[in-house]
Design a binder for these strands. Structure first.
Lengths: 146, 146
DNA sequence: CTTCATGCAAAACATTTGCAGCTGG
DNA sequence: CCAGCTGCAAATGTTTTGCATGAAG
């Protein structure tokens, strides 16, 4: 996984290149996303930013996250129940393992996924440009609490 | 793929077993879902049902779809943009190929997915109970229109 | 300085809920 | 008959939008 500082610098560089401003609020959001081990939700980011900037609004978080998504600097993980989680650490498609109890999300290193993608392309004639792979289950910690 | 008639019968059987009533509206919804080649949205189901029952309400569609989801007779596919699509034909997890242009969704037959699941379980210690695999791309028809 | 971002509040949406009346079994 | 379903309308919850003010560059 990339060092958080690297990711932060990459994000900042992209914003500067595209002439978007670096505001204190944005910087705070970037920092959280760049080191997002926990794949935070918008609400979680909001609460963290408010610890530093008490007047920050949810709208600002949404606007920034959408901006970063369009710049391909954050990966959006939407779930059927409407919850959205964000990964600024690895902003490209990759498999996830989601605990259905505590909602923690991990990134396992899996081989042979690209193989599946070409199989899908071959069998359907689609030109594949993106993917999403989630496994749902119960994490070791929650299993212990059973 | 199961014959639509088989799926319809299975759904009806499950409803009867659990003592849920077979109303004309429900029957119409079941028929659509049982033969859901197109992975319809709630809105799409609503429009189709209204052709037969003009006074049907959206709430009824939602209630029925949620009921079927809880009975494991329909698979819900939620997407980050908030759109939900339903598959009553194969109500168990399976890979999808989604056209980002026309939104059509196909079911490719892919091997070696269970292999990935065990790899994920092994590497994370999770007890895997469900999964979701989507490939996004451009279908042959939309490629032709390029 | 000028333009863009912020933050508030209101709007927009999709989905859910409450409830009176209807109807399947 | 009568529990459960329907359909309406109102409520909900989340994300988006408009706009006046403020700050980045």
């Amino acid at each position: 996984m990339a060092a958080p500082q690297d990711r932060l610098d990459q994000m900042l560089a992209k914003l500067k290149t595209r002439n978007f401003r670096i505001t204190p609020q944005r910087l705070a959001i970037l920092k959280i996303l760049a080191s997002s081990e926990g794949h935070p939700s918008v609400e979680r980011i909001y609460k963290q930013v408010k610890e530093t900037f008490a007047t920050t609004s949810l709208a600002t978080i949404y606007k920034t996250v959408i901006l970063l998504k369009h710049l391909n600097e954050v990966l959006e993980l939407g779930f059927p129940d409407g919850s959205n989680r964000y990964d600024g650490n690895k902003p490209y498609p990759h498999p996830h393992v989601v605990c259905v109890r505590c909602k923690r999300i991990l990134d396992p290193d899996l081989g042979s996924l690209s193989q599946l993608a070409s199989e899908a392309a071959q069998k359907t004639g689609f030109k594949i440009v993106d993917h999403r792979l989630d496994f749902f289950g119960i994490c070791p910690e929650c299993q212990r609490k059973e």
